[in-house]
């Protein structure tokens, strides 16, 4: 676990210097929110759109795709600079390496999540029914599962030719049921102020976090190899 934290802090430190990942993710999510604002312009202005639904759906599209951008570059960067080999030469377990990457990705993705929640509120002049904090907590919960599986898939897809294209193709079917669907429901419920009643969704997201975490932990030896 200590090794994982070391790797995560190394990632975050380099990120703090260059800020290239987080700025890309942030801009990307900003543009998605903006696209939704333009796309729903007429119905939002007319007030004929179901705001909790729109907020939940567009926020999770935003979270998923900006996470994909971030998780992809967290490996692609290392691969291109040939530092991935260096990382693998470190005397740490591969599962620790996976955990480290998960932790650093989780921090970055969560920061971007919070920023997009704020920007959605700003662009749509929407206060989440006064339950903004609950929305943030659910974003954290869903992000944990999303990053646990996404980091593993990004580590897989970085070995391929068309890696930018392949990551969403490989990842989105996996997160459709495990993250996106329950999280959207949960976020909608949270805005209505009754997130605590959706036990089934919370259990399902947490359960998938456990499944993906265990698979990632056990297969890390094979993913990071060679």
């Amino acid at each position: 676990m200590r090794a994982a934290l070391t790797i995560a802090s190394k990632d975050l430190k380099t990120e703090l210097r260059s800020k290239e990942m987080i700025s890309a993710m942030f801009l990307f999510s900003l543009l998605i929110v903006l696209a939704f604002r333009f796309g729903f312009e007429e119905s939002v202005s007319a007030g004929s759109v179901d705001m909790p639904d729109l907020a939940a759906a567009s926020l999770w599209i935003c979270f998923s795709f900006s996470a994909i951008v971030g998780m992809h570059s967290s490996f692609a960067k290392e691969k291109d600079r040939e530092t991935l080999e260096g990382l693998m030469l470190c005397p740490v377990e591969r599962s620790e390496l996976y955990l480290g990457k998960v932790i650093s990705n989780m921090v970055l993705v969560f920061i971007v999540d919070v920023l997009s929640i704020a920007f959605f509120a700003l662009f749509f002049a929407y206060d989440y029914g006064g339950n903004g904090l609950a929305v943030v907590v659910i974003a954290l919960l869903g992000t944990v599962t999303l990053v646990l599986v996404g980091t593993l898939v990004a580590a897989i897809s970085v070995n391929t030719k068309a890696r930018e294209v392949l990551l969403p193709i490989l990842l989105i079917p996996l997160i459709a049921f495990s993250v996106i669907m329950p999280s959207v429901t949960l976020t909608g419920d949270a805005i209505a102020g009754m997130a605590t009643e959706s036990v089934r969704e919370i259990v399902s997201i947490a359960g998938f976090a456990v499944i993906f975490g265990v698979v990632g932990y056990l297969t890390a030896d094979y993913v990071f190899e060679g």
């Binding site: 599986v149 993913v223 190899e225």
Partner: peptide, 13 residues
Amino acid sequence: RISAVYGILGFVT
């Protein structure tokens, strides 16, 4: 190697 891992992961569906 990597497709075996993805096969394991994808099996959850």
